[in-house]
Amino acid sequence: MMNRIHVAGGVGVAPTEMAAYDAALADANLHNYNLVRVSSIVPAGAAVERVDRAPDLGPAGNRLTVVESRITAPPGASDDPLVAGLGWATGPGPGLFYEATGRDPTAVRRELEDGLDAGSELRDWALPDREFEVTTARPEDGAWTTVVTVAVYGESEPVL
């Protein structure tokens, strides 16, 4: 599984901002790890796989390398949807992830497409294969709501 990148989304609702984030990670089965965010490069030879929930990737407390898209709304926020998306582009060599958030799923998808186009052009890489994962939820009344879409690189590693 080392050359596999899993992409999963989650939604969390809780009484505090951090608890909502934790609940969203739990929904994606990533809540028991220490997440280390990286920018956007898909290593050459990696397979990116969309999953409903991340598989078991090692012991609790281990470190996971991720690209993360996250949006949170406080209690009483407008009921416009919360949208967290990742897009990825691959080809014969390395590829790219691009993350975007917002309140309009169509606008987030367009931003993902535009970001992948710009990143490919910047690097002069041919990246013909494109995929997207967009997680959407409406904020809950009276609670914090967080939406995440996370790409998880390989398996976890010990922190210590």
Results as ranks from 00 to 15, higher is better:
Ala89Asp: 08
Asp80Glu: 15
Gly85Asn: 05
Pro139His: 08
Arg109Gly: 07
Gly9Asn: 05
Pro105Trp: 02
Ala143Val: 01
Tyr21Asn: 03
Thr65Gly: 10
Val38Lys: 02
Asp22Pro: 02
Ala151Cys: 05
Asp80Gly: 10
Leu86Met: 07
Ile71Phe: 11
Glu68Ile: 13
Ala60Thr: 14
Ser39Ala: 11
Arg63Pro: 02
Pro74Trp: 12
Ala46Gln: 01
Val108Tyr: 02
Pro105His: 08
Leu122Val: 04
Glu49Arg: 01
Glu113Ala: 13
Ile41Asn: 04
Thr149Tyr: 08
Ala54Glu: 02
Glu140Ala: 14
Ile5Ser: 00
Ala89Val: 01
Gly154Leu: 08
Val134Trp: 03
Gly115Met: 11
Glu113Tyr: 09
Glu99Ile: 07
Ala84Ser: 14
Gly45Asn: 09
Gly85Cys: 13
Leu57Cys: 02
Glu131Asp: 15
Gly45Leu: 09
Leu25Glu: 03
Ala44Tyr: 03
Glu113Thr: 15
Pro55Glu: 10
Ala14Phe: 07
Val148Cys: 04
Tyr98Cys: 05
Asp56Gln: 11
Thr145Trp: 06
Tyr153Pro: 02
Trp125Ile: 01
Leu30Gly: 08
Glu99Trp: 05
Gly45Arg: 10
Glu68Gln: 15
Ala23Lys: 01
Ala26Arg: 13
Gly58Ile: 08
Gly45Thr: 07
Ala28Pro: 06
Asp129Ile: 12
Asn3His: 12
Glu17Pro: 01
Pro59Met: 07
Val108Met: 02
Leu112Met: 13
Ala8Trp: 00
Asp124Tyr: 13
Gly61Met: 09
Thr135Ala: 03
Val66Asp: 05
Gly10Val: 01
Leu35Lys: 04
Glu155Ile: 13
Tyr98Ile: 11
Asn62Gly: 14
Val51Ser: 05
Pro55Gly: 00
Ala107Gly: 10
Thr16Lys: 06
Leu96Val: 07
Leu25Ile: 09
Leu30Glu: 07
Pro94Gln: 15
Leu112Gly: 05
Asp27Phe: 00
Asp114Ala: 15
Met1Lys: 13
Ala77Met: 12
Ala84Tyr: 01
Leu122Glu: 14
Val42Ala: 04
Thr136Met: 06
Val42Thr: 00
Val7Gln: 09
Ser156Phe: 05
Arg130Ala: 02
Ala19Pro: 02
Gly154Phe: 04
Gly142Gln: 06
Leu64Ala: 04
Thr65Val: 15
Val67Cys: 03
Glu111Arg: 15
Glu68Gly: 06
Tyr21Leu: 14
Gly93Asp: 15
Tyr153Leu: 05
Thr145Gln: 04
Ala14Trp: 01
Ala8Tyr: 00
Arg50Phe: 09
Gly95Cys: 11
Ala46Gly: 04
Gly10Gln: 08
Pro75Gly: 07
Gly102Gln: 09
Thr65Asn: 14
Gly9Arg: 05
Val159Asp: 09
Asp52Thr: 12
